[in-house]
Design a protein around this nucleic acid. Structure first.
Lengths: 235, 235, 235, 235
DNA sequence: GATGAATGAGGATTCATTCAT
DNA sequence: AATGAATGAATCCTCATTCAT
């Protein structure tokens, strides 16, 4: 996934400094927004360029094409999530691509489940998605279509989280969920977390409230904490 | 929504009879699959035509264009869900478009919540989505982008269900969810139901199991019944 | 090579009937002319389309792209030459792709060399190139760049002729050319035949006479007959 | 032609000294190779720049554009040939652009024909083309397309040679070629000399031998000497 | 109902070139 | 002398749609 990041060169990354934002970063911002809204096929390179205040050919000085730009957007959005995983799972290889069966929790995952930091961990993920709601949409787009990028997302980010979640459930002998239900419970959990951001237009239409407004985000965070409790608690 | 339905003619709808399937229906089937996979913009009319064994111009003998075809696909997929609502909510106007506030449950909804048929009701919705997993994807696409079709889906189908769900929660004074959490709980519920089908590629990559296989669908139905219980029960 | 021919469908081929010329054929004619003049890279699809009296997209209803069109042009131009070979080499396999060494003449080639029809044979080749001077240019373009098409030209058309030529020389024990010179003599012969048509602009500039005018073509045919005599005769 | 030469600066020309090769010369070398292979239109300035280890804009510090670079390449390649002419035809104006009819040999040309140095003269031309096989290809490209550069090549270099050749034939009353054949014989001669280098890819495909290898070049030189003898000798 | 041919609009991308640094 | 960024023009090609047959 790291390779997908540096489509052209390193990004400063440390101090975004919005007003001095580099063209490179500006393109990524615009592309993230448009790809999230209209999907890959529905987004015209020229539109990205226009909103980034340059012409389409100029964009090719920064990215090697539409696909490369898309992947750079995805990488930039997902990388922090991967980093979160790495930060918590330091010194263990739980994030590797080894095909651990769905119901099998690795030792590291079990450890993570017992880890009191798990709460913070989830909070940060939600915070990141809240701060970058468009990447939830990007993930949804990928989830709908399947593809190489989805594979990277799953292996780099979701699988470790899932392992942790499954581990936490398995350790808890009085969990509400039996063995066959646990993966579905984890999946449900993912749907709820991602769905709030990805399906924002639907929720807005449904409840006539902007789900991404600060108040609603606060509510959702409170809700998710309780929801997590219910999902993982014993009966 | 009715107008979106009869793009050209009545649908047989009752007995698909695959071998005698009309060209009209065949086009809808192919279009549903492709629109679900690649979205509206990512699907070429010519591809739909080819997979339906005709040429693109011929397709225009059956539908008035790409947009009309898309809406016909959406209508055909969503209509049975609307019908389900109508069947349960007969003789009352709970399915109309009146903007009842999100936290306000109509009297009818309360009644529906108490209705022991509610369990069957949910089962049938899940059954329909299971039988037509592509329409879950279509709904997700709409949810991501917003738009007129989404509006119709929300008002014609989701809102009545949501009203019923909210009503059920409200009636239950010991519900786990307080007033501000209830809409979010309902939303979570939607995410879980739709997500299982819409994000099938992600789940398959994650758990290495086809979420749409008969066994997995059965599991999911069992899971959803328990999940519904938890979500709506008292603490 | 045959596969390169039917880029889309069979060509009537028998009666060109210039005034009733099909669009397909008209495109090929224009493309042949432009590709010959400016090469593949220097020719714009839009220019071909314009001169064929349609728009560029329409051209794609007849050919699968610029490359396919180019190959169709080449195939149409070279095929008659291959057919000539086949007609003379009927019932023998001298035209196959077997890698006979440069100095080795097959039995068939020797026979062909003795064949009094060889003179006619050459005449017809010259006649064809005279009638379609552009394909000589196309062959030159290919000769300059190398590539898959060149390979087909060489194996389908040139090699059999070369084998025949080498055979004729080898049979003639008093040939002016010794064994090491023979391939070069054959090559020279090719250069002279093709060059007259391919380098027409140069010759015109040089001699202030149009090499493709009827009189000049007649002269060239007389010259080539004498040239062939000299090249293949004994000292 | 002189104007085309000094596109920017003098050329060292005498001792290429590959390791100390100037950027200017390095660009010319790369451009010569690429233009020869893919023609003017098929060669991208950026590709030339890349292979010369700089960026496209930097190239503009050395040449005034693609066209100017092309002409500089052509000039550098053809100039030595012109110089050869000048050296042999010193003090006469046979190289001027006056349109002497094709069959008319100037007095100077006659003189040149009798000149015993003519053999050396041809040898040097072949040597130059052998040393710079790419310029034969460039000449071929020009011959195919016609154009201003071709005109310069013809008038500056070919015409004098041709005049000499025609003169030699005319003087020789027993020449194999009658008056109408002589220009064609000269043309044939040009095709043979240039063709060996320009059509190298074709010859390689045909004979499975690299025509530019030292041994093959030696053979070709021996062959050309005999060929010249035959072409210009009496019967 | 079906289709081949045609097309305007638009899509991604390449290219030669300029310019500030 | 070199380059990163920018761009207008042009490239090949796709797409949804129309229409005569």
């Amino acid at each position: 996934m790291a390779d997908a990041l540096d489509t052209h060169r390193d990004r400063g990354d440390v101090a975004p400094a919005p007003e001095t934002e580099s063209t490179h970063e500006r393109i990524l911002d615009v592309a993230e927004r448009l790809f999230a809204r209209k999907g890959f096929a529905g987004t015209a390179v020229r539109d990205i360029a226009r909103e980034a205040a340059l012409t389409a050919p100029s964009l090719y000085n920064h990215f090697d094409g539409k696909q490369a730009l898309y992947e750079a957007v995805l990488a930039r959005g997902v990388q922090p999530l991967v980093d979160l995983i790495d930060a918590y799972g330091s010194a263990d290889g739980s994030a590797d691509g080894s095909a651990d069966g769905s119901a099998e929790a690795t030792a590291e995952a079990k450890a993570a489940a017992r880890d009191p930091r798990t709460g913070d961990f989830l909070d940060r993920i939600v915070d990141h998605l809240a701060a970058h709601p468009d990447i939830a949409k990007l993930i949804q787009h990928e989830s709908l279509m399947g593809g190489a990028s989805l594979s990277r997302i799953v292996h780099g980010w979701l699988r470790p989280i899932v392992s942790a979640g499954l581990g936490a459930m398995e350790k808890n002998r009085e969990s509400v969920w039996n063995e066959e239900e646990r993966p579905l419970a984890v999946a449900a959990w993912i749907h709820v977390i991602v769905g709030h951001f990805a399906s924002a237009p639907l929720l807005e239409e449904l409840f006539q409230v902007d789900p991404l407004s600060p108040e609603q985000l606060e509510r959702q965070k409170r809700f998710l904490r309780r929801f997590a409790g219910i999902m993982m608690s014993s009966d």
